[in-house]
Structures are given as C-alpha cells and as structure tokens.
Design a protein around this nucleic acid. Sequence first.
DNA 1: ACGCCGTGGTGGAACGTTCCAGGCATCTAA
DNA 2: TTAGATGCCTGGAACGTTCCACCACGGCGT
Lengths: 349, 349
Amino acid sequence: MKATQSRAPGRNPTIFDVAALAGVSKSTVSNVVRGNDGVSAATRARVERAIEILGYRPNVLARQFVSQRTTILGVLVGDLDNPFYGDLAKRLERLAFRSGYTTMFCNIEGAGDEEADFAASRVEALLEQRPAGVVFLAFFGRSPDIAAALGGVPVVFAGLREDWGDSVAVSNSAGGKLATEHLLDLGHRRIAYLTTHSLERRAHVARHRGYQAAMRGAGVDPAPPIHWGPGSEEATVKGADLSLLDQLRDTTAVFCSNDIGAIAVLEYADRHGLRVPEDLSVVGFDDVHLASLARISLTTIRQPFDDIARIAVDTLLGRLSGTLEGPPRHTQLAPALVVRSSTAAPAAT
Amino acid sequence: MKATQSRAPGRNPTIFDVAALAGVSKSTVSNVVRGNDGVSAATRARVERAIEILGYRPNVLARQFVSQRTTILGVLVGDLDNPFYGDLAKRLERLAFRSGYTTMFCNIEGAGDEEADFAASRVEALLEQRPAGVVFLAFFGRSPDIAAALGGVPVVFAGLREDWGDSVAVSNSAGGKLATEHLLDLGHRRIAYLTTHSLERRAHVARHRGYQAAMRGAGVDPAPPIHWGPGSEEATVKGADLSLLDQLRDTTAVFCSNDIGAIAVLEYADRHGLRVPEDLSVVGFDDVHLASLARISLTTIRQPFDDIARIAVDTLLGRLSGTLEGPPRHTQLAPALVVRSSTAAPAAT
DNA sequence: ACGCCGTGGTGGAACGTTCCAGGCATCTAA
DNA sequence: TTAGATGCCTGGAACGTTCCACCACGGCGT
C-alpha cells in the first residue's frame, strides 16, 4: 500500500497529495517547489522526497491561471520560410529554452490577402496566449494600436528599431548607405533600390533611407523604388517571372532590401540572360548563410545574427525579471559590408 | 456613467460582469460564448449585446485551466534553419491559425551537446505547455518513452511514418530507391549514401533502406554510409570543410539524405575543385525551393509540402474534434524524381 | 518577567472558467 | 387532470495553484 498507489488512478498528483505525504501544508510545498526561503532544510528535504515518490509535477495551467502569466515568449517573424527568420528563430528558441521559456512563432506575413493591419490581428492572436514577452523580428502597421494591444507585456524589437520598446539592431539606414556607397565607389550611378514587400516593413524603410542618403551624398538622384512581387518573398522567389527587365533597363546595379530578394534577382537574371556582375551588380542585406555559397556569392550587408538573438533574449529576460528597468534601451550594432562576386564596376559605356 | 466604466479599472471584464449587465447567470453567458444551445434567441442577443458593451474577452488562461487543455499545436521540427522545416513550419502555422490554433515550435536538433534522448527532453518541455496535439516533422529516440510522455495527446507524424500515431508522408524508402535507381540508370555503380546526422532520424533511416534495396536490386553492394559532420546541418553546411574528399575517392555519385546535405556537398565540391556532375553526381531529397534555383539545380526527390502540411493538420484536427477515430491512419504520398543538372552519366573510365 | 522580533509554518481566499445536478415553467400524452 | 418530457436557465462545486494575513515558538534585550 504505497502512497504512490493510493491516489485516484489517472489523476496527476497535486500539491495536496505531496503535502499529505510529507505531513506539511500545501503552502509549504508550494514554497519548496518555487524555491522560496522560509522553509527549514529538514522540511524541504521531506517535501522533496514526497515529490520524488509521487512523481509530482506542478500543473502549468493552474500556475498560469493564478499568476495570469505564462513562460511563453512570443516571436513575430516575417516569414519562417525566409532563412533570415529561420536562423534567428532557431537561435531565439534555443536561448529561450535554456532560460526555461518556450517560444511561440507567428508569421506576420500573410497569405497574400492581408490588409495593412494584418500584423495587428496576428499580434492579437498571439497575445491571446498571454506570452510573458514578445520579440518582433519584423514589424509594420500602426504602432499605437499594437502598443495598446500589448498592454504592458514587455517587448523587444530585433533587427529593427522602434522607439517605444527595447531594441537591438544594426542601423538599417547605415547598412543601406554602406551597400549603396559600395556600388557608388565601384562607379555605378544608375542604382536601383528594390524591395519585395508591398507593405513596407520598418527595417526596410530605413534601408531605403540609407540608399537615398548615399545617392544624394554622391550628388545622384535616387531612382524610384522598385516594388517587385505582390508583397511576399514566397511569391517572388518561387515565381520569379514578373517583368523586372523593363524596370531595370536603365540601371547597372540594384540594392535589394534583403538577401532573399537579391537571390531572386540573381535567379531572374540567370533566367533572362542578364550576367551578374557584368551586366548588373547586385547587393543584398542580411548575409544569410546562403549568400556565402560559392554558387551564389552575394555581396551583402552582414547582420550579426548571434548577437542580435542573444541581446534580444537577454533584454527581454531582464525586463521580465525586473533587472532591467527604465526607458527603452536601444542596442545598436554595426553593419558590415561583405564583398563577394555579385558586384563589380559597371561595363564601360 | 456607462457600464463600461463601472468596472474596476485595469481589470478585464469577466463572465460575471457580463452576466450582471445582461441580467442572466454566468452559466448562460458561458453557454452563449461557447455557442451551446439551450439558450433562447432573445437571451442570446441580450448577452451578446452586453459582451459588446463591456468588450468582454474570455480569459484563455482560466479556460485552459479548467478544461486542462489548450489550443496550442506543438510542432517538433528538426531545425528551423533548414528550409525544409521552415517551409513546412510556415504552412502548418498558417493552417493552424485558420482553425483557431496557435503553433509552438521546438527544435529537436540540439546545440550539439545533446544525447540520444535529447528529443525526449524536448518533447517533455513542449508537453509541459499542454498542447492539444503534436506534429512531428522529425523524430528519433525511443518510441515507448515518448509515447508515454505524450499521455494521450493526439499526434501526427508528417514527412515520416511511425506506426503508433497517424502519419502523412511520402514513402521515404521508395524515395531513396527512386534516387538511387536514377543514378544506377545513368550507369553509376559506386554510389554512396551520405547523411549529415549522427543521430539517425526515422525518415533518413528509411531513405537509407531504399538506397540499399536499389543497390542490391541492381546486384551492387551498398557502400557503408557516410556520416558527414557532427550531427547538425548547421555545423556541416556552415563549416563545410571536413575531409570528405577521402571518403568520396571511390565514388562517382552520392545520394544525400536531404537537400541541405546535398547543397553542402555541392559547396564542398565547388571549393575543392570537384566538378558536378562531371566528376560527381549528387542527388538530394525534399526538393526545397532552393534546389530549383538555376545556380543550384539539384536533382532530388520531391515531397509535396503542401499536401503534407494540409493533411497533417486535417488529421490532427480530426482527432481533436472526434471526427476521426480508430487506429492510426497512414496517408502515403508518392515521391517524385526531379532531374536537374547535378546528375549525369559517370565519366568513362 | 515581559514585550518584541525573526523564523518556520499554516489555512483561507481568490483567480475565471466549465461542468453538472437541479428548478421551474410549459407542453404532450394518457 | 396529471405524470412525464422538454426547453431554458440557475447556482454550487471544482480545477490546482499563488498570495497573504496570521500564528506559534524560541531567543533576546531591558
């Protein structure tokens, strides 16, 4: 007649079962479980023994209910299919796991039928699960609405900067400037900025600003931005067959707002007999692993994925534990130009 | 003095607030919210009006607590950084969202220091969140342990087959056979099987079996499998610099257990002066989007991502709603060979 | 001897739902 | 007319925690 078997079968042991077996009150068990002090070593040992015997595991759902908070970290990604997000997602998941948090991802980029406030509806769905904190890897939409929906849940922007929350990112505008200046230095003048997003994400807007600044700094008029594709990487990369050729007629170089877009341009060029870099120089942004493959070898702007993920999680955990207080902290990282073989001087005209 | 403002500020309205305003009991409100019948149209309308006025939203945490179940779908992926998983993850997330479920991803592939039962510990961590169901996109480890840990939570295996749960997958062994036969047909005899996993995943084991069957069927002895890399795609793809050359000395063709491994081999070949397909034919598995890029153009085995994701979610939802009952249902899909330019007849010796 | 304080421990209340046994009309069949 | 069924609604109990006010007790300073 072991205590283990005296419980109703099929029911998980509760804090009461442990308390009864250890001969203490439920409160004491609760304190032991949560590592609170005010419990003598002897009692603690006795309770731990009882927990062991019963195989007691705290009921997460009850805990969440009473505290009205979870150990879920929400992560808003643009598109898990984009290796930029995949890489970052993986890192975040791992770091969060080590600190006892579980990660919940949400694609902000929709099925193609989304509206401007699709992001807000996604945030809302995520928030319904009451995450302890939220990481934005991508962001667009109206800040006030979304800030309101968050209702006090700490938030960190990773890879982009938004003033009303903590952030860690390279300067996207500096990166855009760097990329464009590289092309200018090579002698290009007719440089296009290309993005695959119809709904402009914050980070990409900043990259565009960097492009414009560089162009103006060199005394060249920025060309109107090229929006290629219906708004999602998926559609453009997978069906890279839209009439881009026309729009590139007058240009010798393209700065793409991310690597996936750049690789899609590469693919498009390959299929349409446009030689890179002889006929067209291409620069990306992110430096996803793919870009370094010999067969791709894309000149791009490097983002330190590792630092971004680490600092993002640290910042969020700091807010959660109360270690970090005060106004938003913005960690700025340096973007770096990585020159590979997708860029060269323009052909002599 | 609107009702909206009469509540304690900062507190969300509860079912009681609604009940009071509508002049009914909390139970009735509960029934209205959940769409139960046994409520007259008039009452229903009155309650709905009250809900509207108060901006009432059911407390998910309380609901989860009392029902001891969530609307979370757990997804075990091998590695979010691998586009195979990224693509599938994205699709699953979208489908689940449409049905009112939130997705929670877990990387089964660890930081490199994992043991054989790392998978089990990850499953346990995920299960702590009490998901309504679990999708396995990758699986290894000891089935009995993991089945026990699941404790009745419905499960579906996607992309691989495991007998004790529902599954939807192409036949991995048939795919492996297809790939190997393609190489045999081209005239290759010294064909290697290569995998980047030290911990063999179920799906990959089956692919290997297909390879062996094809080889034996052609009267050729299968070569011992090549395990390349310390067990994670990340390490091998990113630091593709291990001494593979020796192991490939006697082979004219490699069948890689997935596309990412194949692309890593391509990269390795590029860097070591090995021409593909002249010196070495390479076949992958999955047909991730990347494989179709002109610059990669990898011969591979196609998996219908779309069908896999859709059927996986449908099956799981079927179990959850009770629509689907009985023994495990196994949906088998047909793998297809996609010939691109990474394979050719071996050089005449 | 007495009040005070710190340490270790207790038990009730609260959290916001769902579930269920029942209550009260009103309708139906005998 | 009446027993039983049906439709609509109610209120208590339960779920497993955390939080907090409070209590018992021994040591200490005065």
